[in-house]
C-alpha cells in the first residue's frame, strides 16, 4: 500500500512516473548488455564446434563452459551471439533514427518554413510513401542495393523519414507564426538564424518522442530484413538473422529462434511504452509554454 501511494504521488507530482522509469531501466539494461556483454562473453562467428551443436539451454559444452541459452546449429553459444546481435541491432536502430530524423527534419523544416512548391513536392512524396507499406518498400530497396550494414541503415532511414518530416513541418508552421519569430525579424535575424534559434529548439521534444516510438519499429524492421535474408551479411550476428537461422530447427531446437525473439519483444514493448509515456508528457503542442 505504501509503495502504491508513493507511486501515485510521484506520478501526480511532476516526478517521473513508472511508465518511464521501468522501461527506461530495461532499455538501459539492453544498452549496457550491448556495450559490455560482447566484451565479457565474446562471439566469434568462425568458432564453430560441431560436437556442441543444438545443445539446449543450461548445457555444459565440450570445453567445460556452461551454455546458458543453448547453442545454435553449428555449436556457437546463443547468449554470446545475442549479445553481439544486441550491439548491431541497437546500433542500426540508433543510426537509422539519426539519419531518418536528419533527413526528415531538414525536409520538414524547409517545407514548413518556405512553403510553396517545395512544400507541395516534399509533402506529396511523403503522402505517397506513407500509402505504401514500409516493410515492402524496405524489401524492395534492399533487394535492389544488396545487403550491407550501410545499406540496411539507408533502407530503413528511407522508410522512416516521412514521420519526422511531417512532425517537423507541422511544428515549423506553428512556430513560424509566433510573435517572437516576427520579433527576431525586426531585430534583423536571417532565415538561418530563425531556423536555428527559434524553430529547431522547439522541434527537439516532439522529434525525441517520435524517435522513441520509431526505435522499436526500426529494430523490428531490421530483424525482418535479416529474417528475409535482405539484412546484414552472414557473419554479422543480428537478432533477426539468428531468429531466421533457427526457424528450420523450431521442432528440435526451439531455443535458437525463441531466445532472441523474446529479447526482441521485450525491448520493443519497453521502448513502445517509453515512447507513449513521453508523448503524453511532452505533447508537441505544449513545448512553447
Amino acid at each position: 500500500m505504501a509503495d502504491l501511494s508513493a507511486t501515485t504521488t510521484l506520478a501526480s507530482g511532476r516526478a517521473l512516473p513508472l511508465g518511464i522509469v521501468l522501461p527506461a531501466i530495461v532499455v538501459g539494461f539492453y544498452v549496457l548488455a550491448a556495450v559490455i556483454g560482447p566484451i565479457l562473453l565474446g562471439f566469434d562467428p568462425v568458432a564453430t564446434s560441431l560436437a556442441d551443436r543444438l545443445k539446449p539451454p543450461m548445457t555444459a559444452l565440450a570445453n567445460g563452459s556452461l551454455s546458458l541459452l543453448g547453442t545454435d546449429a553449428v555449436g556457437r553459444d546463443l547468449l554470446a551471439q545475442m549479445l553481439a546481435g544486441a550491439r548491431i541491432s541497437l546500433a542500426v536502430g540508433a543510426a537509422t533514427l539519426v539519419l531518418a530524423s536528419l533527413i526528415g527534419v531538414a525536409l520538414g523544416v524547409v517545407a514548413g518554413y518556405w512553403g510553396g512548391a517545395v512544400d507541395t513536392v516534399v509533402m506529396r512524396i511523403a503522402d505517397i510513401q506513407l500509402g505504401f507499406p514500409s516493410i515492402l518498400l524496405a524489401v524492395l530497396v534492399a533487394a535492389v542495393i544488396g545487403p550491407s550494414l550501410t545499406n540496411v541503415i539507408l533502407v530503413l532511414a528511407v522508410t522512416r523519414w516521412v514521420v519526422f518530416a511531417r512532425v517537423a513541418r507541422a511544428q515549423t508552421l506553428t512556430i513560424k507564426s509566433r510573435t517572437f519569430v516576427d520579433a527576431s525579424r525586426t531585430l534583423g535575424a536571417t532565415d538561418a538564424h530563425i531556423i536555428i534559434n527559434c524553430i529547431l529548439p522547439a522541434l527537439v521534444a516532439p522529434i525525441l518522442v517520435v524517435a522513441t516510438v520509431q526505435f522499436g519499429l526500426v529494430i523490428v524492421a531490421e530483424a525482418s530484413l535479416s529474417f528475409l535474408g535482405l539484412g546484414l551479411p552472414v557473419g554479422i550476428p543480428t537478432w533477426g538473422g539468428t531468429i531466421s537461422a533457427g526457424r528450420s530447427y523450431l521442432a528440435n531446437a526451439w531455443w535458437i529462434s525463441t531466445m532472441p525473439g523474446i529479447a526482441l519483444s521485450i525491448l520493443v514493448i519497453c521502448v513502445g511504452i517509453l515512447g507513449d509515456t513521453l508523448r503524453d508528457r511532452l505533447d508537441p503542442n505544449l513545448v512553447t509554454r
Binding site: 568462425v46 568458432a47 564453430t48 546449429a73 553449428v74 535474408g229 551479411p233 552472414v234 557473419g235 537461422a245
Partner: peptide
C-alpha cells in the same frame, strides 16, 4: 548450406586461412 559453409570456414581458420562468407 549456411551451417556447412560456416563449419568449413571454421576449419580453415584453424590453419590460418581467413575466409569471409558471402551468402
Amino acid at each position: 548450406i549456411r551451417e556447412f559453409a560456416e563449419t568449413l570456414i571454421s576449419y580453415w581458420a584453424a590453419v590460418g586461412i581467413q575466409v569471409t562468407p558471402q551468402e
